[in-house]
């Protein structure tokens, strides 16, 4: 490589390089069932991209439909909003990633 940086392990294998792409964890929080959660991250200022991943908690019976949250991103603010009217509501893990 003609620019950037590389980090090697002690066995000489490449461990990380500026040619790589990754996502960093800004936050992870639980949005409780039926509750809107809004968070603003000062550490995310200057990041070129922010995304979220959501996971349902499995505290529900397997034959019970459960509404999760719709997560929106505006600048460095992430909002998790419960939606819909069918079934029960579920707690949702929201993982906020940036790079």
């Amino acid at each position: 490589m003609s620019y950037g940086f590389e980090l090697f392990r002690s066995d000489g294998t490449l461990g990380f390089s500026s040619d790589n792409v990754t996502w960093n964890q800004i936050d992870a929080f639980i949005a409780l069932a039926g509750v809107t959660v809004t968070k603003t991250y000062t550490t995310a200022v200057g990041l070129s991209e922010i995304i979220t991943l959501q996971f349902m908690l499995y505290t529900l019976d397997p034959d019970t439909a459960a509404e999760t949250h719709t997560v929106s991103i505006s600048g460095t603010t992430v909002t998790a909003t419960p939606v819909g009217t069918q079934g029960a509501y579920s707690d949702t893990y929201v993982v906020v990633l940036g790079r």
Partner: peptide, 10 residues
């Protein structure tokens, strides 16, 4: 794209 930051956890 940020690869490493002392403000964010990889």
């Amino acid at each position: 794209q940020v690869l490493i930051s002392s403000n964010l956890q990889n």
